[in-house]
């Protein structure tokens, strides 16, 4: 199945950024739902339920991308020995997942500080 393996290369190129998108959608949804149902007023230990949920979702996505980056690194190393195309996709997919990791880190960092529902 050459065709399928080919398409998989493109899917892996976008994998990290897909996780970034998932983080975007779930965090935005969780924030909106939390604000609507008053999670901000519920205290869980030192923080509000709202912030706990947000930070939890954020860390879960970060962990997912970090795992992806590690896997991509192995793949890129293996591919660099192979032909040019595998090397190209190994490199670009690794970089793209690194970009996704950085974007996920920066994009949602404000949940650590800003007031949630104002």
């Amino acid at each position: 199945m050459i065709g399928q393996r080919s398409a998989a290369n493109l899917l892996l190129l976008t994998a990290g950024l897909v996780i970034w998108s998932s983080a975007f959608v779930t965090l935005y949804a969780a924030l909106s739902i939390g604000c609507a149902f008053g999670w901000e007023a519920v205290q869980v230990g030192p923080v509000s339920l709202q912030r706990l949920v947000l930070v939890g979702l954020w860390l879960a996505h970060l962990a997912l991308i970090a795992g992806l980056v590690l896997w991509m690194r192995g793949r890129a190393r293996r591919a660099s020995a192979g032909d040019g195309l595998a090397g190209f996709f190994g490199r670009t997919s690794l970089w793209a997942s690194l970009v996704a990791l950085a974007a996920t880190l920066v994009n949602y960092a404000p949940i650590l500080g800003l007031s949630a529902c104002l």
């Binding site: 950024l17 970034w20 975007f24 924030l31 909106s32 793209a96 996704a100 994009n107 949940i111 800003l114």
Partner: peptide, 26 residues
Amino acid sequence: ALGFLSFGLWVHHMFTVGIPHLAQSF
């Protein structure tokens, strides 16, 4: 990256419609 990130900006046309500041920060 541009193809994906550009989907995360749409609300910047809606900063004045009364969305929480944290959501705006995303």
